[in-house]
């Protein structure tokens, strides 16, 4: 049963992140929740790539025949982390500007500019 734990943890973190996104009151909190959601994707990737009894795929000091975890998934996670950091930077920059222009950083203030207008 415990072998499902990595998937369950990834799923739980995803749910927590989404809950945070929906109930957020502060844009920085929103951005961090987005990061949490992305973390759950890293965890899922690494869980999928894990090999029971495998070690890190660095062959400087181990033999070729040693069982290792999947390097492809780790490369994907690395890419995902960098992308996550990049998006976080952009969103936080936008948050700073919102704070300066509007004086509020409540995501509920980011209401669509839909107006009740006749044709």
């Amino acid at each position: 049963m415990l072998s499902w734990l990595p998937y369950a943890v990834a799923g739980w973190i995803f749910l927590v992140g989404c809950y945070g996104l929906v109930t957020s009151r502060h844009l920085v909190h929103t951005v961090v929740c987005l990061n949490v959601v992305q973390s759950s994707t890293y965890l899922l990737l690494l869980a999928v790539g894990w090999t029971r009894g495998g070690t890190a795929p660095i062959f400087a000091d181990i033999g070729r025949s040693r069982s290792v975890t999947d390097p492809v998934v780790q490369a994907m996670t690395l890419t995902d982390i960098v992308v996550g950091a990049a998006v976080t930077a952009l969103l936080l920059a936008l948050t700073v500007q919102i704070a300066k222009r509007r004086g509020t950083v409540d995501p509920r203030a980011l209401r669509s500019f839909e107006q009740e207008s006749e044709e």
Binding site: V68, P71, V72
Partner: peptide, 13 residues
């Protein structure tokens, strides 16, 4: 988790 086959991973190594 731990038993997922990794054909691509093996090729990559």
């Amino acid at each position: 988790a731990g038993d997922v086959p990794h054909p691509y991973g093996a090729r990559a190594v």
